[in-house]
Design a protein around this nucleic acid. Structure first.
Length: 188
DNA sequence: TATGAGATCAACT
DNA sequence: GTTGATCTCATAC
């Protein structure tokens, strides 16, 4: 199973995002299969990088293949994969995983046994994996991260993004069709 | 099932 | 001082 390296991310977010569906993400041997992501581009009013570089979003303006982690609503951490050549400030938000490895660790951190709710949402999956701002700027192709390309053909659906107030109409959310582990179902 | 409030913080105006 | 790329719990229907 090939590991995803930096060149994989050095392409348009719109190519990378759907290809991440079905890939396996591990952080310190805990994680699972990516079933939901959203693409953010610097020309997109909903993106953190839209208004230019700041201290918070600096990693988005760096080279591809790194993690951008930010605080959401003062409570959660959310993790993005930086894409496209350095300076284009585009990234893919990881929104949900199907938990496959390290179940016990995730259940302990999330205070629930129900696998359905371990990683089905951007804030939930960082809590389950133990990802925090300490991982901001971390390379994705080196420990403690491990990212493997998907092996089989799968059915990817796209739809409108969630939880944002700007550029709501852009269909830049991608998911694994029919997965039980999505943060919300896709509209048919 | 659906809606609503509260938690809590760093960036930005 | 305001605002979120969110989640959980409570209350209502």
């Amino acid at each position: 199973m090939p590991r995803l390296r930096k060149p994989f991310f050095n392409r348009s977010v719109h190519e990378v995002a759907p290809e991440l569906i079905g890939a396996r993400l591990l952080f310190r041997d805990v994680g699972g299969v990516i079933v939901e992501v959203e693409a953010y581009h610097h020309t997109d009013p909903a993106a953190h990088s839209y208004g230019g570089q700041t201290q918070r979003n600096a990693v988005m303006f760096g080279p591809p293949g790194y993690a951008y982690v930010y605080r959401s609503y003062g409570i959660h951490w959310c993790v993005n994969f930086v894409c496209e050549p350095a300076g284009s400030a585009s990234a893919v938000l990881i929104r949900a995983l199907e938990p496959t490895e390290g179940l016990a660790a995730m259940q302990r951190r999330r205070h629930t046994k129900d696998v359905r709710f371990l990683c089905s949402g951007p804030g939930r999956l960082t809590e389950a994996l133990g990802i925090t701002h300490a991982q901001n700027g971390c390379a994705l192709d080196a420990a403690p991260f491990e990212l493997h390309a998907r092996e089989e053909a799968i059915d990817v659906v796209s739809g409108l993004r969630i939880g944002i107030t700007k550029a709501v109409e852009l269909p830049w959310r991608y998911g694994l069709r029919g997965s039980r582990f999505l943060s919300k179902p896709f509209k048919v």
